[in-house]
């Protein structure tokens, strides 16, 4: 990685008067949808929230969230990305912005809108025009050398989640190595090890989300 991300912090502070927009990105199968469902369950009683999913195929992720009944149906919207999931969160955010704004119009007073990316590669990064903050999700089964290799998502996301840690012993991934490699490329930005098997509420990640959502005006 030759990139310098030190000056690339999100300076666009959450806008007062609208929901915080939280992007969740990461490779296919890293557990983005399950994490989104866990965050909805953990936060829905204290935050007014909604979700936009970006699917490569069909509306599978939105259907999963509806089946799991983590939120009311009208709080979940699916966006199609024309076979280019990274384009829809980075180069041309139109469809996602439209979806977010429709949710905001339908549910005045939303605190948080989660935009879950379609599965993508390690260079995918949410545009600041779409997400105020972003989480990048890796899983241990994807290889413990991924944090060392870096990539825009790994290095620059506001929070890196190393997911499915319960699988590490079975796939031979070195969690300590992943964590230290991640810390090195991330210049101090937070990393959370997560396993929904042992912590279905995603406690640490939910706490981080609480810390970045501005307190709603009374």
């Amino acid at each position: 990685m030759g990139g310098h991300f030190g000056s690339d912090e999100h300076t666009a502070s959450p806008v007062v008067g609208r929901a915080l927009r939280l992007g969740i990105g990461g490779p296919v199968g890293s557990g983005k949808t399950a994490l989104t469902a866990a965050l909805c369950r953990s936060l829905r009683d204290e935050l007014d929230l909604a979700v936009v999913t970006n699917d490569i195929y069909t509306t599978e992720d939105a259907d999963f969230l509806r089946r799991e009944a983590v939120l009311a149906d009208d709080r979940i919207t699916a966006v199609r990305t024309g076979a280019c999931p990274h384009t829809a969160i980075r180069d041309d955010i139109s469809a996602n912005l439209d979806a977010v704004e429709e949710l905001e119009a339908r549910h005045p007073g939303l605190d948080l809108v989660i935009v879950e990316s379609g599965g993508d590669n390690l260079t995918a990064l949410f545009s600041r025009g779409l997400a105020d903050r972003q989480i990048f999700v890796l899983d241990v089964a994807g290889g413990d050398d991924v944090p060392r290799k870096g990539g825009l998502g790994v290095a620059a996301a506001d929070l890196l989640v190393i997911n499915k840690t319960d699988l590490a012993e079975f796939v031979g991934s070195d969690l300590a190595l992943m964590e230290s490699d991640a810390a090195r490329v991330r210049d101090g930005r937070p990393v959370i090890l997560n396993s929904l098997r042992t912590d279905p509420a995603a406690t640490g990640i939910a706490a981080w989300v609480r810390s970045v959502v501005p307190v709603a005006a009374p």
């Binding site: 280019c84 829809a88 041309d92």
Partner: peptide, 12 residues
């Protein structure tokens, strides 16, 4: 085609 106006998700 890079105009950020949503065209990439439509196939005509």
């Amino acid at each position: 085609s890079r105009l950020p106006a949503g065209g990439h998700a439509h196939s005509g």
